[in-house]
Measured scan of single mutants.
Amino acid sequence: GSSGLPPGWQSYLSPQGRRYYVNTTTNETTWERPSSS
């Protein structure tokens, strides 16, 4: 899909309704949208 996220990243919603991002390669999580640069 065209999520616009860098490879390996997925976006999720927290129980509070906030969006966060997870790097499935490194298990890093961040509130900031990852850049593909």
Score class of each variant (00 low, 15 high):
Thr29Ser: 08
Thr29Asn: 05
Ser3His: 14
Thr25Phe: 15
Gly1Asn: 12
Val22Gly: 01
Gly8Met: 06
Gln16Lys: 09
Thr25Ser: 12
Tyr21Gly: 00
Thr30Met: 07
Ser2Gly: 13
Ser2Asp: 14
Glu28Gln: 08
Ser14Asn: 13
Asn27Val: 01
Ser2Met: 11
Val22Asn: 01
Glu32Tyr: 10
Arg18Tyr: 13
Ser14Ile: 01
Gly8His: 07
Trp31Tyr: 10
Thr30His: 05
Gln10Arg: 14
Leu5Gly: 03
Gly17Ala: 01
Thr24Arg: 08
Pro34Glu: 02
Thr24Phe: 08
Asn23Phe: 06
Thr29Pro: 04
Arg33His: 11
Leu13Val: 11
Leu5Met: 06
Gly8Trp: 06
Leu5Cys: 01
Ser3Trp: 15
Gln10Lys: 14
Leu13His: 04
Tyr12Gln: 05
Thr25Met: 15
Leu5Ser: 03
Ser11Ala: 11
Thr26Lys: 03
Thr30Ile: 09
Arg18Asp: 15
Thr30Pro: 00
Ser14Met: 03
Leu13Gln: 05
Glu32Met: 09
Arg18His: 15
Arg18Lys: 14
Thr26Trp: 02
Asn23Leu: 03
Ser3Ile: 13
Asn23Val: 00
Tyr20Lys: 03
Tyr20Asp: 01
Tyr21Asp: 00
Ser11Phe: 05
Leu5Val: 05
Thr29Glu: 07
Arg19Thr: 12
Gln16Asp: 15
Gly1Val: 12
Ser37Arg: 07
Gly1Ile: 13
Thr25Asn: 11
Pro34Cys: 00
Leu13Asn: 04
Val22Met: 06
Arg19Asp: 07
Asn27Ile: 02
Thr26Met: 03
Trp31Phe: 11
Ser35Ile: 12
Arg18Leu: 14
Arg18Glu: 15
Leu5Pro: 03
Ser3Gly: 13
Ser11Met: 14
Tyr20Pro: 01
Asn23Ile: 01
Thr30Asn: 03
Thr24Asp: 07
Leu13Tyr: 07
Thr25Leu: 15
Gly4Asn: 10
Glu28Ala: 06
Thr29His: 12
Leu5Thr: 04
Gln10Trp: 07
Pro7Tyr: 07
Pro34Asn: 02
Glu28Gly: 02
Tyr21Ser: 00
Pro7Asp: 10
Tyr21Phe: 06
Arg18Ala: 09
Thr29Leu: 15
Arg18Ser: 10
Ser2Ile: 13
Ser14His: 05
Thr24Glu: 09
Ser3Asp: 14
Tyr21His: 00
Gly8Glu: 07
Ser3Glu: 14
Val22Arg: 08
Ser3Lys: 10
Arg33Val: 09
Ser2Thr: 12
Ser3Ala: 14
Gly4Pro: 14
Trp9Ile: 03
Thr30Asp: 01
Trp9Pro: 01
Arg18Thr: 15
Ser14Ala: 04
Ser11Trp: 08
Ser35Pro: 11
Arg19Trp: 15
Gly4Gln: 11
Gln16Met: 08
Leu5Ala: 04
Thr30Leu: 07
Leu13Thr: 09
Thr29Tyr: 12
Trp9Met: 01
Ser36Gly: 13
Arg18Trp: 09
Pro6Asn: 03
Trp31Thr: 07
Gly4Arg: 10
Ser11Pro: 04
Ser37Asp: 14
Leu5Asn: 04
Ser36Met: 13
Pro34Val: 02
Pro34Arg: 00
Pro34Trp: 01
Gly1Ser: 13
Tyr20Ser: 01
Gly4Ser: 11
Glu32His: 10
Ser35Asp: 12
Pro34Thr: 01
Ser3Pro: 13
Gly4Cys: 11
Ser35Val: 14
Arg33Gly: 03
Arg33Phe: 13
Ser37Phe: 11
Gly8Asn: 09
Asn23Met: 02
Thr26Ser: 05
Glu28Pro: 00
Ser3Gln: 12
Pro15Leu: 07
Arg33Ile: 10
Gln16His: 10
Leu13Lys: 05
Ser36Asp: 11
Arg18Ile: 15
Tyr20Phe: 10
Gly8Phe: 07
Gly1Cys: 09
Asn27Gln: 11
Ser11Asp: 05
Ser14Gln: 01
Pro6Asp: 03
Gly17Arg: 02
Thr29Trp: 15
Glu28Val: 08
Ser36Leu: 14
Glu32Ala: 07
Asn27Lys: 12
Ser2Gln: 12
Leu5Arg: 02
Glu32Ile: 14
Gly1Arg: 02
Pro6Lys: 04
Leu13Gly: 02
Gly4Lys: 10
Gln16Ala: 13
Trp31Asp: 05
Ser37Gln: 13
Tyr20Asn: 00
Pro6Phe: 03
Ser35Arg: 09
Ser14Lys: 01
Trp9Ser: 00
Asn23Trp: 04
Trp9Gly: 00
Pro15Asn: 07
Thr30Tyr: 07
Asn27Phe: 11
Pro7Cys: 15
Ser3Tyr: 14
Tyr12Phe: 15
Ser2Asn: 13
Tyr21Met: 00
Ser35Glu: 11
Ser35Tyr: 09
Asn23Gln: 03
Ser35Phe: 11
Trp31Asn: 05
Tyr12Leu: 09
Thr25Lys: 13
Gly17Asn: 04
Gln10Pro: 01
Thr26Ala: 03
Gln16Tyr: 07
Thr25Asp: 10
Leu13Ile: 12
Trp31Leu: 06
Gln16Gly: 14
Glu32Asp: 11
Ser36Ala: 14
Leu13Trp: 10
Glu32Val: 13
Asn27Met: 12
Ser2Trp: 10
Ser2Leu: 12
